[in-house]
């Protein structure tokens, strides 16, 4: 099962990276979202897969009755999901504001910090 998931995750990564290599900021954003999903699933799968048994201890017991899903990657991924969303929102607003300020959604056209054809640094002392 893990192998099957690995292939699926690889596909997620490939699509995410492909979109991130776009010049258009919207596609980059979508790519980042997919990449986030891929990373979360990667952590989840690396902790091994168990079907349908959530890591919850039954009411009358003090330890889980049998093998359960691995709780540790779940805890890691849960917070990661929320944080990746808040970063996604930040990037979205950043992209929106950039578009408003620069009038373009093409990252190669955004050259305020690194203008085209900059002069060589000055020689001498």
């Amino acid at each position: 099962m893990e192998a099957g998931f690995s292939v699926l995750i690889g596909l997620f990564f490939a699509v995410g990276v492909y979109l991130m290599l776009s010049r258009h900021i919207v596609h980059i954003l979508i790519g980042i979202t997919i990449l986030g999903n891929a990373v979360n699933m990667l952590i989840f799968t690396a902790g091994r897969l168990t079907r349908e048994v959530p890591p919850v201890i039954p009411l009358e017991l003090y330890v889980p009755a049998g093998p359960t899903a691995n709780p540790l990657p779940q805890a890691l991924v849960l917070t990661a999901i929320v944080i990746s969303f808040s970063f996604f929102a930040f990037l979205l607003v950043l992209a929106f504001r950039t578009y408003q300020e620069l009038g373009t959604d093409d990252v190669n056209e955004m050259r305020v910090a690194e203008p085209k054809g900059e002069a060589l640094p000055p020689q001498g002392y």
């Binding site: 048994v53 779940q74 991924v77």
Partner: peptide, 11 residues
């Protein structure tokens, strides 16, 4: 499906 209802809900 793989035993993570918390994650699923959050996602």
């Amino acid at each position: 499906l793989f035993g993570a209802p918390d994650l699923s809900f959050t996602q």
